[in-house]
Design a protein around this nucleic acid. Structure first.
Lengths: 138, 138
DNA sequence: ACAGCATTCATACTAAAGTATGAAATTTAG
DNA sequence: CTAAATTTCATACTTTAGTATGAATGCTGT
C-alpha cells in the first residue's frame, strides 16, 4: 500500500514538472506547441495503458463465479447440490455418505434426483453439465 | 474489419482537429497552455485505457494450455489419453467404444490402465486429477 | 393444523464400472 | 530384424452406480 502511495506521488510530481518544463520550453521559443502537445499525448497514452494493465492484473483471480440463480432454476435442493459437488471432487457414494454422515442409500437417492434435474445419465455427465452451467467451481 | 479502419480514421481526424483547435485557442489567447495540455492529457489517458481494454478483451479466450509433458511423465498412451478425454466429456464406456470404433472391453482395459497411471480409484477422480494436472481442457 | 417439500433410510433390482488374466495383432524404437 | 510397447479383444468376476418403490421424520408457510 505504501508503495502505491509513493508511486502515485512520484507520478503527480513528474507530471507537474513536465507541465512547468513544457511551459518554459514554449515561452523560451525553442519548442513548438505541437511538439509539446504530442509528447504530452504520448506520455498520457502510455500512462493510461500501464494503469489499466495494473488494475486488470489485480483482479486476475480467475475465481469462477458460481451461478446460484441457475441452481435454483434447476430446482436443486441444498443436499443434492452438496452431493453434486462431492461427486465433482471424485468421491464415491460411500465416501460421500461418510463425509455427510448419512447412509449410502440416502446419497443414492440424492444422486438419482440430481441426475434427473441436470438431465444427465451418469455422474460424469453431471459434472460436465454442471461445469457448463457454472454451478460448480472449475 | 471495416469498422476498425473507420473508427481508427475517425480517431486520427478527431486528434488532428483537436490539435488545430488547441493551437488557435492558444494563439487567440482565450485559453491558457496549461488548460490545453491538461485536456490533451486526459483525452489520451482515456484513449490509452480504451484501446488497452479492447486488446485485452480480444484475447480473453482462457484457453487452458494442456501440459503435454505431464502426459508423457505419467506414461499415458495415446489411446489411454483419448479415453480419458471422453470420460471427462461424460461418456460411458459403451459410448466411447462406439466413438472410437472398438469394443467395450478394449475401453475397459484402457480405463483400468489409465486409472493406475493417474493413481485414481474411479473415473470421476481421474477427471479431477487430470484437471489438476492440466492435462485436459477445463 | 396441514399440505408440500426436503431429508432420511431400506430393500430389491438392473446397469455400468472396474479388476484380473490371457492372448493375438500391430507399432515402434534400437 | 527383434524386443518392447501398444492396441485390441474375450471371459469371468467383483464392486459401484443408478432405478424404483415405499415410508418415516422434520421443517415451512398459509
Amino acid at each position: 500500500m505504501k508503495k502505491t502511495i509513493f508511486t502515485f506521488a512520484a507520478l503527480v510530481l513528474a507530471i507537474l514538472a513536465l507541465f512547468q518544463l513544457s511551459k518554459y520550453s514554449i515561452i523560451a521559443g525553442d519548442t513548438s506547441i505541437e511538439t509539446v502537445i504530442a509528447i504530452i499525448a504520448v506520455i498520457f497514452f502510455i500512462i493510461g495503458i500501464v494503469i489499466n494493465k495494473r488494475v486488470l492484473h489485480k483482479k486476475k483471480t480467475p475465481t469462477q463465479e458460481i451461478n446460484y440463480q441457475k441452481i435454483e432454476e434447476l430446482g436443486l435442493s441444498k443436499r443434492e447440490y452438496e452431493v453434486l459437488c462431492q461427486i465433482a471432487m471424485g468421491l464415491s457414494n460411500k465416501e460421500i455418505a461418510q463425509k455427510l454422515f448419512v447412509s449410502e442409500s440416502t446419497i443414492k437417492t440424492h444422486v438419482s434426483n440430481m441426475l434427473v434435474k441436470l438431465d444427465a445419465k451418469r455422474r460424469t455427465q453431471a459434472i460436465q453439465i454442471a461445469k457448463q452451467l457454472q454451478i460448480i467451481p472449475l
